[in-house]
């Protein structure tokens, strides 16, 4: 059987899909968006505060302050993951905790913790990037494509 055939549902299946859909509560999209906005905003505000701190007290410039700021946020996120708090915050905050760099730290740390029982090499090492791996792979690839486009435009006499 081809994939298309499997995807094609019989009329009874389609009818049931509708029947079930009418009875399934919708995700509260608006509420989730508001929560994500608040949580994401708070994380970014903390980040901004950290950057300001590094610039004011530790002599970093606006550009160089980025690295220690991100590092601090990652450490906080990993600690919260380890203490088992991050997933509870995320259930409330949704995309608010998933999108910033803290979410990325959480994917790596949670997978590493989960597979500790399978040993440090095959468990932690092998599974650490189980979720984050695709972000890295496609992130690097899209950066490469964007760089190519930029170079091409430049070579053609663009901006």
């Amino acid at each position: 059987m081809s994939n298309k055939k499997i995807k094609k549902l019989t009329p009874t299946q389609q009818e049931y899909k509708k029947f079930a859909k009418d009875r399934v509560p919708k995700r509260p999209v608006l509420l989730n968006s508001i929560r994500a906005f608040i949580a994401g905003g708070i994380i970014c505000t903390i980040g901004q505060g950290l950057q300001w701190m590094f610039m004011t007290y530790f002599g970093f410039t606006e550009i160089t302050a980025g690295n220690p700021t991100v590092a601090v946020l990652i450490i906080i996120s990993v600690l919260l993951t380890g203490f088992g708090v991050y997933d509870h915050i995320a259930q409330w905050a949704g995309a608010g905790t998933a999108v910033p760099v803290t979410g990325f730290a959480n994917t790596v740390a949670s997978a590493a913790i989960e597979h500790r029982t399978e040993g440090y090499v095959l468990g932690v090492g092998g599974n650490m990037f189980k979720l984050a791996g695709s972000v890295i792979a496609y992130g690097v690839f899209s950066a490469f494509v964007v760089a190519l486009i930029k170079i091409t435009i430049k070579a053609l006499g663009g901006i």
């Binding site: 989730n32 993951t81 997933d87 998933a98 959480n106 949670s110 989960e114």
Partner: peptide
Amino acid sequence: YPTEYGSQKPP
């Protein structure tokens, strides 16, 4: 997903 992974579960 891993237990500590912060994903929002639907109702």
